[in-house]
């Protein structure tokens, strides 16, 4: 059997065998494997990317939380400060109102006292005038009867006035 001139028989069977192998493997063999390997590669790449993104998001969430906490702290401080200010303001207002009220009451009292004083004064004057008129009336009456007695009487009256 020759080595360097191809035998027809071997050529025929080789073509047949290789043809069948190629047909079978090109249909059910290699495309399946290549596709499976590529799918797996894509899947792994995607998973890695997802994990990376998730990790990034996690880091972001932490930063966000930290920021929120810091904001809350600042807000708390402002609220506390506001509350203190409010308290002081309310206290001050109340004090002022109390002062105002006291002042008004004092004024009222002063006015009342003044009025009462005026009234008393008025009455005293009126009574004094009445007394004087009464006195004058009595003097006039005793003068008509007895001059000495009148004198005595005026003397007495005056004495009485002095004493009164």
């Amino acid at each position: 059997m020759s080595l360097f001139t191809p035998d027809f028989g071997l050529l025929f069977w080789m073509a047949l065998a290789f043809g069948i192998v190629l047909a079978v493997l090109a249909k059910w063999g290699f495309p399946v494997i290549v596709k499976a390997v590529n799918d797996r590669k894509t899947y792994i790449d995607k998973s890695l990317q997802n994990a990376h993104e998730a990790n990034e998001r996690l880091v972001n969430i932490k930063a966000e939380t930290d920021m929120l906490v810091a904001q809350a702290q600042v807000e708390k401080q402002t609220i506390l400060k506001d509350a203190v200010q409010q308290k002081q303001r309310i206290l001050a207002e109340a004090q002022e109102q109390v002062n105002e009220l006291t002042r008004k009451q004092m004024e009222q009292a002063k006015a009342d006292i003044e009025e009462q004083r005026q009234q008393s004064l008025h009455q005293i004057r009126k009574e004094t005038a009445d007394l004087a008129i009464e006195m004058a009336k009595k003097v006039m009456q005793s003068e008509l009867r007895d001059e000495t007695a009148q004198r005595q009487s005026i003397e007495n009256q005056l004495e009485g006035l002095k004493e009164g």
């Binding site: 027809f8 192998v21 079978v24 493997l25 290699f30 494997i33």
Partner: peptide, 28 residues
Amino acid sequence: PIDISITKNVCGLFMVSFITITLILYCA
């Protein structure tokens, strides 16, 4: 004459074909 006998090499080719197909289809 035209000789398409199943020679030693043809047996070998059949065997190789069988091994190749079995191996790759097993993997697939």
